[in-house]
């Protein structure tokens, strides 16, 4: 018993120690966010000499007269719409690829994978030309509408892998009871896929929250900026960068991400009770 407890303690100690090493850069950033701008690069100490909240105050004022609060709202809007869009559209495609039978299924699946292999930068210009012809530039449409059409193959593939693991025998009973393809999707596939759908939601949130290249290309007016775009505005190679404000706002921008992760990991790891369906 003693030995077991000691081993447990040792395990906790190791997890914490290693965890601290992992997040050392973040601790450094947190400390830098309370330092004065001049001190950030001139001292190596983790403790600020004169802790100050100025970085947070200055940073929150935002960019070009638009406060950071607005950027948070914009980022939330994009992230939430993207989550809904991805969950709907990708789960439909994944259901078709994993559980339904139709001609050219494998070919279409291969095409779907190939679309993931073309580097983003060469797609960007043709895409931009198309979106500018239909007048969508400087709106959120180029960032959101494609997601309603399952353009994120990563999630389709992820859901396919997960749905293939749902036992076919399990689906046979309702089928015999006369449930149609759609009812099986809604009442069995979707609930059983909750852990995977939560993964899709978390990743979509994080990735759209952090994405900068396409947001930078499509959004120009500061009132439409997102958090990740606004953060980039603090650093400028030719002028005076506001490092303190950058670190302060970077810390704040991690809060929603961390919050989402902590709340949703329950569903992710612990799943939901599926006993009733399994019976």
């Amino acid at each position: 018993m003693r030995v077991k407890q000691r081993r447990k303690l040792l395990m906790h100690f190791l997890i914490i120690l290693f965890g601290l090493i992992m997040i050392y850069p973040l601790i450094w950033m947190l400390s830098a966010s309370f330092k004065e701008d001049v001190e950030i690069f001139q001292s190596t100490s983790l403790l600020p000499k004169n802790p100050t909240l100025n970085n947070y105050i200055y940073g929150w004022k935002g960019v070009s007269g638009v406060s950071f609060g607005k950027f948070f709202i914009n980022s939330f809007f994009i992230a939430i719409v993207s989550i809904i869009a991805n969950i709907l559209s990708c789960s439909m495609a994944a259901y078709a690829f994993s559980k339904l039978e139709f001609k050219f299924k494998n070919t279409l699946f291969a095409i779907m994978l190939v679309t993931l292999m073309l580097p983003f930068h060469v797609r960007l210009i043709p895409q931009y030309i198309v979106f500018s012809k239909i007048g969508w530039v400087n709106t959120y449409l180029p960032l959101l509408v494609p997601k309603f059409f399952a353009t994120e193959g990563f999630f389709i593939f992820l859901l396919v892998q997960f749905m293939r693991g749902i036992s076919n025998e399990l689906l046979e009973a309702p089928r015999i009871d006369g449930a149609g393809t759609f009812r099986i999707y809604m009442q069995f596939i979707m609930p059983l896929s909750v852990p995977a759908l939560v993964t899709v939601a978390i990743f979509t949130f994080i990735w759209t929250w952090n994405d900068f290249f396409s947001q930078m290309i499509y959004l120009s007016a500061p009132p439409t900026f997102t958090v990740s775009l606004a953060l980039r505005m603090f650093v400028d190679a030719t002028g005076e960068s506001s490092w303190g404000a950058l670190f302060a706002m970077s810390c704040l921008s991690l809060v929603p991400l961390l919050f989402i992760f902590i709340v949703f990991q329950r569903y992710l790891v612990e799943g939901i009770m599926l006993g009733s369906i399994k019976g």
Binding site: I206, N210, F212, S228, L231, L258
Partner: peptide
């Protein structure tokens, strides 16, 4: 992993 490719 929450960090992505942030400038920070």
């Amino acid at each position: 992993s929450l960090f992505g490719g942030s400038v920070a």
